[in-house]
């Protein structure tokens, strides 16, 4: 903390107060919706007028386990991981082509890459479902394929920015020191890009992890992931506790992952002067 920072801490100015207030509002905005979720997850009975649950218990957990929660969790994890594993290197290749190799009409190429963000996923999923069925692509492979395309804009944008900021001198220096292009990629570029790669992979994972529409339509209901399970549980009445437990299961792993991804990111940023 510099001199200015210390002075501000000693006598908070208006700007500092405003910043703190803003942060508090933001934190409340993010955390408040989780509070009823947490309460519902442990509520065996919570009728309308009561402010807090009348009876606490583990019925929700029991119901969630019985409904196939663990298997759905495993499927969501696998789906998110598969999308991340495919979309991250593809995004890196696209980003490199856009930044380094000067593809013809990069604006048009970028627009095509970003188009999944613009098109309504429902329309894309319905249209492609027919195509994938005709091509006899297995349902699960179709889901992974479509979600990888949906994740590409995120990985491309993140990695394009990181690559554009990277000094090409590192690559050239490594080459003159005797490294082959492959050794430069493995020993220099990937480590330098590690924070951005982690961030891109995280976003791609989230696309697979949280998808509902594509998994439902293209997967044909056979690939039951957490969002599908939550959707079907929530459409029935009377099992709020189960829905709450499943929802928390869907929220907490990405948060844990985010904390993990954030650590190397901070370390790398600390390395810059």
């Amino acid at each position: 903390m510099g001199l200015i920072g210390r002075r501000a801490a000693a006598r908070p100015g208006r700007a500092v107060l405003a910043t703190r207030l803003g942060r508090a509002v933001l934190a409340a905005w993010l955390v408040l919706p989780l509070v009823p979720l947490l309460l519902w997850a442990v509520a065996d009975r919570w009728s309308a007028p009561a402010v807090l649950p009348q009876e606490l218990g583990t019925d929700g957990l029991r119901d969630a386990l019985a409904a196939g929660g663990p298997a759905a969790l495993a499927r969501s994890t696998a789906l998110g991981a598969a999308v991340a594993v495919l979309a991250t290197p593809l995004g890196a290749l696209a980003a490199r082509a856009l930044v380094v190799h000067r593809v013809p009409r990069p604006g048009a190429v970028l627009a095509v890459l970003l188009s999944p963000l613009v098109l309504p996923p429902f329309a894309v999923a319905l249209g492609l479902d027919v195509l994938l069925l005709r091509l006899r692509v297995p349902a699960t492979a179709g889901v992974v394929l479509l979600l990888t395309v949906a994740a590409l804009p995120y990985t491309t944008i993140v990695l394009r920015a990181a690559l554009a900021a990277q000094d090409r001198g590192f690559e050239e220096e490594a080459r003159t020191l005797g490294a082959t292009p492959w050794q430069v990629l493995r020993g220099v570029q990937v480590p330098l890009l590690a924070p951005a790669l982690a961030g891109a992979a995280f976003l791609a994972f989230l696309v697979g992890w949280s998808d509902y529409v594509v998994t439902l339509l293209v997967g044909g209901g056979r690939l039951v992931t957490l969002p599908l399970l939550i959707g079907s549980a929530a459409s029935a009445t009377g099992n709020e506790a189960q829905v709450a437990v499943l929802s928390l299961t869907a929220v907490l792993p990405p948060l844990a992952l985010l904390a993990l991804v954030g650590v190397p990111g901070r370390r790398a940023r600390g390395g810059r002067r």
């Binding site: 000094d167 220096e173 003159t176 020191l177 220099v188 330098l192 590690a194 390395g271």
Partner: peptide, 13 residues
């Protein structure tokens, strides 16, 4: 050949 640039370009990792 080996090259030294104006920027040190030490691999930060």
């Amino acid at each position: 050949v080996a090259m030294v640039f104006q920027r040190p370009l030490l691999f930060p990792h």
